[in-house]
Amino acid sequence: MTEAVTAAEPARHAASLAVWDIPAATTAGEHFAVKVGAKSSGGCGLGGCRVDVLDSAGAVLASGQLGAEPWPGTDALFWSEIELCAPSAPGLMPLAVRFSADGLVEPHDSGASPFHVAVVAAPDHVLTVTVAAAGSPVADAIVRAGPIRATTDETGRARLHLAKGRHEIAVWKTGYDAPITPLTVEADATLRVEAKVLPEHDPDAISTRTRSGRRELRVVGAGPNRSQAMTDDALPDRLCNNPNSPHYNEQVLSRDVGIRFNGKEKTNVEEYCISEGWIRVAAGKALDRYGNPLTIKLTGAVEPYFRDKTEG
């Protein structure tokens, strides 16, 4: 984005550059604009100077003339808006800006500052993503598929215009955590993403984690009870001992659940799924940013059982 060139002689000034308001994603073949600003290390007024936008081969794609007034909030960043056309091939397009000191009284050194523009294929379909947490819609969450973004409305909905093919849908909002959902878009579609509300962090509770003893599937935790109707000794197809998981089941976990995996007893299981044939086990002592154990997925035959039953 910017580049400083150290003046070889003290007399020479340097111009450094910034490029902003680059669209998060631009559709192949369409026009878009970026803002380019230049700042003189000597505090010179750079209004009227030329800036060029170059492609990766160094060819000038467009040029602009810096205005007379600095960008609001800056000391002396003289700027211009430059219109460009996205190439037809999707991908990250490497570009650069270059400052031309022609016409300035004081000579200025300047190199080219790189920046990138994300070019995406023309959309074919609309993916409507609904974000909810604990049964309520989450507004103002950013939903993204790579560079393509939208923000959820008060109903928790955001619409992404996507090309056919595989996308990874991620959701971000401060104070929430949501899984990344891979999907293949072949038609207009809807997706519901369950986010979890991160607990308010008490800054005085400075220990790096709280104690819940979640080392085995055996702790009764406080959390929403999502248990479904089941017979006394039935174990669910999928079970997780994180109270924030939809597969958490307090009723089941209030009893001691043992796991046999490929015939072997496992005591560090965080989550299992019988039908899909996998378990997630704690990866050593590593914790994620929320203090939950990092897990490794192992595939094989999963046999959960109630320990209290086998032990008598």
């Binding site: 984005m1 910034a18 902003w20 909030g73 920046f115 560079p147």
Partner: peptide, 29 residues
């Protein structure tokens, strides 16, 4: 910052696996 901004565009931090890097650092000051 230029490299990080490409991670933001792609949604993947290739250096340190920051989860879905969200925001470019580009607008002055």
């Amino acid at each position: 910052v230029t490299r990080y901004n490409t991670f933001v565009a792609e949604g993947v931090d290739k250096d340190f696996k920051k989860k879905t890097p969200m925001f470019k650092i580009e607008k002055p000051p």
